[in-house]
């Protein structure tokens, strides 16, 4: 037998084995995914920008981001501003701006979430709770915004019930967004989410501008939603809030996943693996000690991250 041919045959066998392995992988994954409402794998979001003249450049906003959310669980995604947190939400829902390119795989309920599927599910099973009053139409009254303009008795009854559940009286429906306080707006935004029966709630910075008491109350609302069996993805830059509200925390840096840990692990530096997460843990006011020396290495860690993550 010719040696070359044998080689090629083994090659083919190898490749077949590879394919078989990959198939097994996929099967495995779908098993693992079973419990996950949302699983994001190797997500990248990049923008094509026109620089000076006609030169095009690609800006990577999110790179190789991984995370998962199980049913009944709150997973916090924490990261500094500019770490691609909001883009993650928009990518999952398929509402990225037109000049954005997305790569990677998003599984929802065990199946790949294609753009078409996302379009079908968003606003029904997958809902977004945005961050501020600017997400409400400034010239439309609250009532029709909550009901999406549906005027049948059942929808109106439901919106009445939902708003009342958040302590918002009937006359709020007749108000315009600019007439409500920040806290009321936040509750209206959460109310829009539970107008449906969501399986996945993506909350994009739901608390800034609220005092700690109100923020805690808002977090309580998300816990209630999670307790109904929905997965909640909480996007925030407030690590302390994330610790108090979430079950697990995924830390992002420069659009990439640094690591993931149970919320409880953040109370104990030794349980964390990545130096950035250790540093975050140390930076928490609770973990400060009086001589303050542990704070001093923040410069070092940032330098390290810049080298590792390239930004």
């Amino acid at each position: 037998m010719n040696i070359g041919i044998t080689d090629r045959n083994t090659d083919i066998v190898d490749r077949n084995a590879d394919i078989a392995n990959r198939d097994a992988d996929i099967v495995d994954k779908s098993k693992g995914v079973e419990n996950d409402v949302l699983k994001v794998e190797h997500l990248s979001v990049s923008f094509t920008q026109y620089g000076r003249g006609l030169r095009r450049r690609t800006l990577h906003a999110v790179e190789d981001l991984n995370l998962s959310v199980r049913a009944g669980e709150i997973v916090a995604v924490a990261g500094s501003s500019g770490s691609g947190k909001s883009l993650l939400a928009h990518a999952v829902m398929g509402i990225l701006p037109y000049n954005a390119n997305m790569d990677g795989t998003v599984y929802y309920d065990g199946e790949i979430l294609t753009k078409e599927r996302a379009k079908r599910l968003r606003g029904r099973e997958i809902v977004l709770v945005p961050q501020s009053v600017s997400y409400l139409d400034p010239l439309m009254k609250i009532g029709p915004q909550v009901t999406k303009g549906k005027n049948d008795a059942a929808t109106r009854e439901k919106s009445r019930r939902v708003l009342a559940g958040y302590g918002l009286s009937e006359d709020v429906e007749e108000k315009y967004p600019f007439q409500l306080s920040g806290g009321m707006i936040r509750r209206v935004l959460i109310a829009t989410a539970v107008m449906e029966t969501p399986k996945l709630v993506i909350a994009d910075e739901p608390t800034p501008g609220l005092h700690p008491e109100a923020a805690k109350r808002v977090m309580g609302h998300f816990r209630e939603i999670a307790d109904t069996g929905a997965g909640v993805l909480l996007i925030t830059h407030d690590l302390e809030l994330a610790l108090s509200a979430a079950d697990r925390i995924t830390v992002l840096y420069g659009g990439r996943t640094v690591g993931e840990a149970a919320a409880a692990d953040f109370l104990c530096e030794e349980k964390l693996e990545h130096p950035y997460m250790k540093a975050l843990c140390r930076s928490m006011p609770k973990n400060w000690n009086w001589d303050g020396y542990k704070l001093c290495d923040s410069g070092e860690i940032l330098e390290y991250m810049r080298k590792e993550y390239g930004r």
Partner: peptide, 10 residues
């Protein structure tokens, strides 16, 4: 933002 949110709500 509000059109983005409207799209997000299907």
């Amino acid at each position: 933002d509000y059109v983005l949110f409207a799209r997000a709500r299907g």
